[in-house]
Protein backbone atom coordinates (compact mmCIF):
# COMPACT_ATOMS: atom_id res chain seq x y z
CA UNK A 1 0.00 0.00 0.00
CA UNK A 2 1.31 3.47 -0.96
CA UNK A 3 1.86 5.95 1.82
CA UNK A 4 -0.50 8.89 1.64
CA UNK A 5 1.12 12.26 1.09
CA UNK A 6 0.93 14.79 3.91
CA UNK A 7 -0.37 18.10 2.60
CA UNK A 8 -0.18 21.20 4.77
CA UNK A 9 -3.12 23.57 4.27
CA UNK A 10 -2.38 27.08 5.51
CA UNK A 11 -5.46 29.17 6.17
CA UNK A 12 -7.47 26.02 6.78
CA UNK A 13 -10.25 27.83 8.63
CA UNK A 14 -11.06 29.98 5.64
CA UNK A 15 -13.78 29.55 3.03
CA UNK A 16 -11.54 27.76 0.53
CA UNK A 17 -9.07 26.25 3.01
CA UNK A 18 -11.80 24.29 4.78
CA UNK A 19 -12.95 22.74 1.57
CA UNK A 20 -9.41 21.89 0.49
CA UNK A 21 -8.94 20.04 3.80
CA UNK A 22 -12.18 18.13 3.26
CA UNK A 23 -11.28 17.26 -0.32
CA UNK A 24 -7.83 16.03 0.65
CA UNK A 25 -9.28 13.99 3.48
CA UNK A 26 -11.66 12.21 1.17
CA UNK A 27 -8.95 11.59 -1.41
CA UNK A 28 -7.12 8.30 -1.59
CA UNK A 29 -3.72 9.90 -1.95
CA UNK A 30 -3.41 12.61 0.66
CA UNK A 31 -3.73 13.35 4.32
CA UNK A 32 -4.36 16.98 5.14
CA UNK A 33 -2.59 18.83 7.89
CA UNK A 34 -4.83 21.79 8.58
CA UNK A 35 -3.17 24.90 9.92
CA UNK A 36 -4.71 28.17 10.96
CA UNK A 37 -4.26 31.19 13.13
CA UNK A 38 -7.19 30.36 15.36
CA UNK A 39 -6.95 28.06 18.36
CA UNK A 40 -10.11 26.19 17.55
CA UNK A 41 -9.58 23.30 15.19
CA UNK A 42 -11.48 23.21 11.93
CA UNK A 43 -14.48 20.95 11.86
CA UNK A 44 -12.49 17.80 12.01
CA UNK A 45 -12.69 14.75 14.11
CA UNK A 46 -8.94 14.49 13.95
CA UNK A 47 -7.51 17.10 16.30
CA UNK A 48 -4.05 15.63 15.62
CA UNK A 49 -4.29 16.97 12.08
CA UNK A 50 -4.68 20.59 13.15
CA UNK A 51 -1.88 23.02 13.84
CA UNK A 52 -2.34 26.44 15.27
CA UNK A 53 0.32 28.66 13.83
CA UNK A 54 1.22 32.13 12.72
CA UNK A 55 1.87 31.67 9.00
CA UNK A 56 4.25 34.64 8.96
CA UNK A 57 6.56 33.05 11.55
CA UNK A 58 9.39 31.05 9.86
CA UNK A 59 10.09 28.93 12.95
CA UNK A 60 6.52 27.78 13.26
CA UNK A 61 6.36 27.14 9.55
CA UNK A 62 9.58 25.12 9.66
CA UNK A 63 8.06 22.78 12.18
CA UNK A 64 4.83 22.55 10.23
CA UNK A 65 6.62 21.71 6.98
CA UNK A 66 8.45 18.82 8.47
CA UNK A 67 7.38 15.71 6.63
CA UNK A 68 4.92 17.29 4.25
CA UNK A 69 5.20 16.88 0.49
CA UNK A 70 2.83 19.63 -0.45
CA UNK A 71 1.52 22.94 0.83
CA UNK A 72 -1.60 24.86 -0.09
CA UNK A 73 -1.30 28.52 0.80
CA UNK A 74 -4.80 29.86 1.40
CA UNK A 75 -3.71 32.46 3.91
CA UNK A 76 -5.92 35.52 3.77
CA UNK A 77 -5.65 38.77 5.65
CA UNK A 78 -4.25 42.22 5.22
CA UNK A 79 -1.42 43.09 2.84
CA UNK A 80 1.25 42.50 5.47
CA UNK A 81 -0.03 39.04 6.30
CA UNK A 82 -0.20 38.07 2.61
CA UNK A 83 3.32 39.25 1.76
CA UNK A 84 5.04 38.22 4.98
CA UNK A 85 3.30 34.85 4.96
CA UNK A 86 4.39 34.18 1.40
CA UNK A 87 7.96 35.33 2.08
CA UNK A 88 8.28 33.12 5.16
CA UNK A 89 6.72 30.10 3.47
CA UNK A 90 8.86 30.22 0.34
CA UNK A 91 12.06 30.83 2.32
CA UNK A 92 11.43 27.99 4.74
CA UNK A 93 10.32 25.64 1.98
CA UNK A 94 13.58 26.29 0.15
CA UNK A 95 15.49 25.15 3.23
CA UNK A 96 13.69 21.84 3.49
CA UNK A 97 15.71 18.77 2.43
CA UNK A 98 12.80 17.60 0.32
CA UNK A 99 11.24 20.72 -1.12
CA UNK A 100 7.45 20.47 -1.01
CA UNK A 101 5.19 21.39 -3.94
CA UNK A 102 3.47 24.65 -3.02
CA UNK A 103 0.15 25.70 -4.48
CA UNK A 104 -0.18 29.39 -3.83
CA UNK A 105 -3.55 31.04 -4.17
CA UNK A 106 -3.42 34.38 -5.92
CA UNK A 107 -6.18 36.48 -7.36
CA UNK A 108 -7.56 38.21 -10.43
CA UNK A 109 -6.82 41.36 -8.42
CA UNK A 110 -3.20 41.19 -9.68
CA UNK A 111 -4.43 42.44 -13.07
CA UNK A 112 -5.48 45.74 -11.53
CA UNK A 113 -7.71 47.77 -13.83
CA UNK A 114 -6.71 45.86 -16.96
CA UNK A 115 -9.53 45.27 -19.43
CA UNK A 116 -10.05 42.91 -22.35
CA UNK A 117 -9.02 39.28 -22.64
CA UNK A 118 -6.10 38.55 -20.33
CA UNK A 119 -4.00 35.45 -20.18
CA UNK A 120 -1.39 34.65 -17.57
CA UNK A 121 1.34 36.55 -19.44
CA UNK A 122 -0.56 39.85 -19.32
CA UNK A 123 1.33 42.52 -17.41
CA UNK A 124 -0.46 43.88 -14.36
CA UNK A 125 -2.57 46.91 -15.12
CA UNK A 126 -2.58 50.27 -13.42
CA UNK A 127 -4.75 50.94 -10.41
CA UNK A 128 -3.74 47.95 -8.31
CA UNK A 129 -5.60 47.82 -5.03
CA UNK A 130 -3.60 47.26 -1.84
CA UNK A 131 -4.85 43.68 -1.90
CA UNK A 132 -3.90 43.28 -5.57
CA UNK A 133 -0.44 44.75 -4.94
CA UNK A 134 0.12 42.36 -2.01
CA UNK A 135 -0.98 39.39 -4.12
CA UNK A 136 1.33 40.52 -6.92
CA UNK A 137 4.26 40.85 -4.53
CA UNK A 138 3.53 37.37 -3.17
CA UNK A 139 3.59 36.06 -6.74
CA UNK A 140 6.94 37.73 -7.31
CA UNK A 141 8.29 35.96 -4.24
CA UNK A 142 6.81 32.70 -5.53
CA UNK A 143 8.67 33.02 -8.82
CA UNK A 144 11.93 33.20 -6.86
CA UNK A 145 11.04 30.07 -4.96
CA UNK A 146 10.75 27.92 -8.06
CA UNK A 147 8.57 25.03 -6.96
CA UNK A 148 5.40 27.04 -6.57
CA UNK A 149 2.25 26.73 -8.68
CA UNK A 150 0.28 29.95 -8.65
CA UNK A 151 -3.48 29.89 -9.15
CA UNK A 152 -5.09 33.24 -9.92
CA UNK A 153 -8.63 32.74 -8.75
CA UNK A 154 -11.51 34.76 -10.11
CA UNK A 155 -14.67 35.49 -8.15
CA UNK A 156 -15.10 32.38 -6.00
CA UNK A 157 -18.76 31.79 -5.24
CA UNK A 158 -20.89 29.02 -3.88
CA UNK A 159 -22.06 27.75 -0.48
CA UNK A 160 -20.22 29.49 2.41
CA UNK A 161 -18.95 32.29 0.17
CA UNK A 162 -19.76 35.22 2.41
CA UNK A 163 -18.35 37.73 -0.03
CA UNK A 164 -19.59 36.69 -3.46
CA UNK A 165 -22.69 34.67 -2.62
CA UNK A 166 -23.91 35.71 0.84
CA UNK A 167 -23.35 39.42 0.48
CA UNK A 168 -24.63 39.49 -3.09
CA UNK A 169 -27.73 37.51 -2.08
CA UNK A 170 -28.52 40.01 0.66
CA UNK A 171 -28.12 42.90 -1.76
CA UNK A 172 -30.27 41.19 -4.39
CA UNK A 173 -33.02 40.37 -1.93
CA UNK A 174 -33.16 43.97 -0.79
CA UNK A 175 -33.11 45.05 -4.47
CA UNK A 176 -29.98 47.10 -3.88
CA UNK A 177 -28.35 45.13 -6.68
CA UNK A 178 -29.91 43.85 -9.87
CA UNK A 179 -29.62 44.93 -13.47
CA UNK A 180 -27.13 47.79 -13.30
CA UNK A 181 -27.20 48.74 -17.00
CA UNK A 182 -23.83 50.25 -17.96
CA UNK A 183 -22.72 49.76 -14.36
CA UNK A 184 -22.83 45.96 -14.64
CA UNK A 185 -21.25 45.45 -18.05
CA UNK A 186 -17.99 44.23 -16.56
CA UNK A 187 -17.19 40.54 -16.71
CA UNK A 188 -17.69 38.49 -13.60
CA UNK A 189 -14.93 35.89 -13.70
CA UNK A 190 -16.82 33.37 -11.61
CA UNK A 191 -15.31 30.22 -10.15
CA UNK A 192 -17.55 27.77 -8.38
CA UNK A 193 -15.85 26.89 -5.12
CA UNK A 194 -15.71 23.17 -5.90
CA UNK A 195 -13.94 23.98 -9.18
CA UNK A 196 -11.41 26.12 -7.30
CA UNK A 197 -10.75 23.23 -4.91
CA UNK A 198 -10.47 20.78 -7.78
CA UNK A 199 -7.93 23.02 -9.50
CA UNK A 200 -5.89 23.17 -6.27
CA UNK A 201 -5.79 19.39 -6.01
CA UNK A 202 -4.83 19.04 -9.65
CA UNK A 203 -2.06 21.60 -9.12
CA UNK A 204 -0.77 19.56 -6.20
CA UNK A 205 -0.70 16.37 -8.22
CA UNK A 206 0.18 17.41 -11.77
CA UNK A 207 3.63 16.76 -13.12
CA UNK A 208 5.94 19.54 -14.30
CA UNK A 209 3.81 22.37 -13.01
CA UNK A 210 6.40 24.06 -10.83
CA UNK A 211 6.76 27.73 -11.63
CA UNK A 212 3.56 27.89 -13.62
CA UNK A 213 0.70 30.35 -13.21
CA UNK A 214 -2.92 29.58 -14.04
CA UNK A 215 -5.99 31.75 -14.37
CA UNK A 216 -8.89 29.97 -12.71
CA UNK A 217 -12.33 31.10 -13.81
CA UNK A 218 -15.34 29.98 -15.77
CA UNK A 219 -14.71 30.07 -19.53
CA UNK A 220 -17.19 32.41 -21.26
CA UNK A 221 -17.85 34.13 -17.99
CA UNK A 222 -21.03 36.16 -17.65
CA UNK A 223 -21.25 39.88 -17.05
CA UNK A 224 -22.03 41.08 -13.56
CA UNK A 225 -25.51 41.99 -14.80
CA UNK A 226 -26.04 38.42 -15.95
CA UNK A 227 -24.69 37.05 -12.69
CA UNK A 228 -26.99 39.25 -10.63
CA UNK A 229 -30.01 38.49 -12.77
CA UNK A 230 -29.50 34.73 -12.74
CA UNK A 231 -28.66 34.58 -9.05
CA UNK A 232 -31.67 36.76 -8.19
CA UNK A 233 -33.92 34.37 -10.08
CA UNK A 234 -32.32 31.36 -8.37
CA UNK A 235 -32.95 33.08 -5.03
CA UNK A 236 -36.49 34.05 -5.92
CA UNK A 237 -35.51 37.70 -5.42
CA UNK A 238 -37.67 38.77 -8.34
CA UNK A 239 -38.47 40.80 -10.26
CA UNK A 240 -34.88 41.84 -10.78
CA UNK A 241 -34.56 45.55 -10.12
CA UNK A 242 -33.14 47.87 -12.74
CA UNK A 243 -30.91 50.34 -10.95
CA UNK A 244 -29.72 53.65 -12.30
CA UNK A 245 -26.18 54.97 -12.18
CA UNK A 246 -27.54 57.71 -9.93
CA UNK A 247 -28.70 55.10 -7.45
CA UNK A 248 -25.29 53.40 -7.54
CA UNK A 249 -23.57 56.70 -6.87
CA UNK A 250 -25.78 57.25 -3.83
CA UNK A 251 -24.95 53.74 -2.64
CA UNK A 252 -21.19 54.08 -2.98
CA UNK A 253 -20.69 57.72 -2.08
CA UNK A 254 -23.35 58.40 0.55
CA UNK A 255 -24.53 55.13 2.06
CA UNK A 256 -21.36 53.04 1.95
CA UNK A 257 -19.21 54.99 4.48
CA UNK A 258 -21.72 54.94 7.37
CA UNK A 259 -22.67 51.34 6.61
CA UNK A 260 -19.01 50.33 6.69
CA UNK A 261 -18.57 52.02 10.07
CA UNK A 262 -21.71 50.31 11.34
CA UNK A 263 -20.43 46.98 10.06
CA UNK A 264 -17.09 47.41 11.84
CA UNK A 265 -18.71 48.48 15.09
CA UNK A 266 -21.25 45.66 14.95
CA UNK A 267 -18.48 43.18 14.16
CA UNK A 268 -16.63 44.17 17.30
CA UNK A 269 -19.75 43.78 19.40
CA UNK A 270 -21.12 40.53 18.01
CA UNK A 271 -21.07 38.64 14.71
CA UNK A 272 -24.83 38.16 14.93
CA UNK A 273 -25.31 41.91 15.22
CA UNK A 274 -23.17 42.34 12.10
CA UNK A 275 -25.68 40.33 10.13
CA UNK A 276 -28.27 43.00 10.84
CA UNK A 277 -26.23 45.73 9.19
CA UNK A 278 -27.01 46.08 5.46
CA UNK A 279 -23.86 45.38 3.44
CA UNK A 280 -22.14 48.49 2.07
CA UNK A 281 -21.46 48.81 -1.66
CA UNK A 282 -18.09 50.58 -1.71
CA UNK A 283 -16.74 52.46 -4.76
CA UNK A 284 -14.23 49.65 -5.38
CA UNK A 285 -17.10 47.24 -5.94
CA UNK A 286 -18.84 49.66 -8.30
CA UNK A 287 -15.60 49.87 -10.30
CA UNK A 288 -15.26 46.10 -10.37
CA UNK A 289 -18.79 45.70 -11.77
CA UNK A 290 -17.77 47.88 -14.73
CA UNK A 291 -14.38 46.30 -15.40
CA UNK A 292 -14.49 44.47 -18.72
CA UNK A 293 -11.71 42.01 -17.95
CA UNK A 294 -12.08 38.45 -19.12
CA UNK A 295 -9.55 35.92 -17.84
CA UNK A 296 -8.52 33.43 -20.47
CA UNK A 297 -8.36 29.99 -18.94
CA UNK A 298 -6.98 27.91 -21.79
CA UNK A 299 -3.99 26.86 -19.70
CA UNK A 300 -6.13 25.63 -16.81
CA UNK A 301 -8.40 23.84 -19.27
CA UNK A 302 -5.51 22.16 -21.03
CA UNK A 303 -3.07 21.44 -18.22
CA UNK A 304 -5.29 21.06 -15.17
CA UNK A 305 -8.22 19.61 -17.13
CA UNK A 306 -10.93 21.20 -15.01
CA UNK A 307 -14.56 20.31 -15.76
CA UNK A 308 -16.27 23.59 -14.91
CA UNK A 309 -19.54 23.49 -13.01
CA UNK A 310 -22.28 25.07 -15.14
CA UNK A 311 -23.24 28.45 -13.72
CA UNK A 312 -26.92 27.64 -13.16
CA UNK A 313 -25.94 24.54 -11.18
CA UNK A 314 -23.51 26.56 -9.07
CA UNK A 315 -26.04 29.33 -8.49
CA UNK A 316 -28.67 26.81 -7.50
CA UNK A 317 -26.33 25.39 -4.82
CA UNK A 318 -25.45 28.89 -3.66
CA UNK A 319 -29.13 29.88 -3.46
CA UNK A 320 -30.03 26.73 -1.50
CA UNK A 321 -27.18 27.39 0.92
CA UNK A 322 -28.27 30.99 1.38
CA UNK A 323 -31.89 30.04 2.00
CA UNK A 324 -30.85 27.60 4.68
Amino acid sequence: MTMKQRILVLGANGFIGKRVVDALRSSDWATPVAAGRRAMPVATADAQAYLQLDATDPDQLRRALDGVTGVVNCVAGDSGTIVNGARALFRVAAEMPLRPRIVHLSSIAVYGELEGDVDEAAPPGAGLSAYGAAKLEAERLARGAGVVVVLRLGIVYGPDSAQWSGRIARLLRSHRLGDLGNGGDGYCNLVYVADAVRSILRALQGADLAGQVFNIGLPDCPTWNEYFSRFAIALGAVPVARLSSRRLRIESKILAPPLKVAEIVAGKVSPSLMRLVPPPIPPSLIRLFCQEIRMKVHAADKVLGIQWTPIDEGLSHAANWYRQ
Binding site: G178, D179, S229, A232, I233, V238, P239, V240, A241, R242
Partner: peptide, 8 residues
Protein backbone atom coordinates in the same frame (compact mmCIF):
# COMPACT_ATOMS: atom_id res chain seq x y z
CA UNK B 1 -48.68 44.61 -17.97
CA UNK B 2 -47.10 41.70 -16.20
CA UNK B 3 -43.52 41.86 -14.95
CA UNK B 4 -41.26 38.90 -15.68
CA UNK B 5 -38.70 37.59 -13.19
CA UNK B 6 -36.07 39.53 -15.11
CA UNK B 7 -38.04 42.69 -14.40
CA UNK B 8 -39.31 43.12 -17.96
Amino acid sequence: YEVSDQGI
